[in-house]
């Protein structure tokens, strides 16, 4: 019996230095619990502080927005992000920022493709549409090619609708030049919405569609 056990023990591989002998001692268990707590605690907190804001997100087509960031209802995670990244969010009564990182079908936006953005936006006193590349500098203003439009500049058709072409190569009508390569994102800013309630009920708002027209390799 004794001989058999010795044979069995010699057949298992030598345990790594960081694994305790089984059963583990109380000291090892305490150390293990503390390490686990530190890794889980700091790791998850840092994970949550990546942008954009983790909670309170609303959707409307390809657009996402956070209606409570600019109010006193800001949640603790958004508060930590605003503080840590030294942001100055738009106030509730000023306007709203909407972000699109995909087209209307949910595919990521690539600078090598051609998109159209249109065709109407519900009521706001002014709005702006700006394209940002993911590289640096984020706001590409190369060769004076425009990367943004305001509601005052846009060319509209007889019905008051508009279309903006997003592509690297020049297009007729309203055109925003895309960055040289990589992904990009679009920010729509609505200034002075009729009432503050409207920004919460923005799900019914008409916001522009982003449509993929084709890609060049």
């Amino acid at each position: 019996m004794l001989i058999r056990q010795e044979v069995f023990q010699s057949s298992i591989p030598k345990r790594p230095f960081w694994l305790p002998a089984w059963p583990p001692s109380i000291e090892w268990l305490v150390l293990y619990a503390l390490l686990l707590a530190l890794i889980i605690g700091f790791g998850s907190a840092l994970w949550m502080l990546r942008t954009p804001y983790p909670f309170g997100k609303e959707h409307n087509g390809p657009w996402v927005y956070w209606p409570e960031i600019g109010s006193s209802d800001i949640d603790p995670y958004a508060m930590a992000i605003v503080t840590q990244k030294a942001r100055l969010p738009l106030g509730v009564n000023e306007g709203l920022e909407l972000l699109a990182t995909t087209d209307s079908t949910g595919r990521a936006l690539y600078a090598s493709c051609h998109y159209t953005l249109g065709n109407s936006i519900s009521q706001a006193r002014y709005w702006t549409i700006t394209v940002y590349g993911t590289g640096t500098p984020a706001f590409h203003n190369v060769n004076a090619a425009r990367a943004n439009f305001t509601s005052s500049e846009i060319v509209r058709n007889e019905q008051g609708a508009f279309t903006i072409n997003l592509s690297r190569d020049a297009a007729s009508g309203n055109w925003i030049k895309l960055p040289k390569s990589g992904k990009f994102f679009i920010v729509l800013r609505l200034y002075d919405l009729p009432t503050t309630e409207d920004r919460v009920g923005l799900g019914q708002y008409r916001l522009p569609e982003i449509t993929l027209q084709g890609c060049s390799s």
Binding site: Y32, L34, L35, L36, A37, G41, A45, L49, P76
Partner: peptide, 19 residues
């Protein structure tokens, strides 16, 4: 039990950091 204690303590650390 030690794992559970670690997870709970981790959650507390998370909340304390954020706040």
């Amino acid at each position: 039990l030690a794992t559970l204690a670690g997870l709970i303590l981790g959650a507390i650390i998370h909340i304390v950091i954020i706040l």
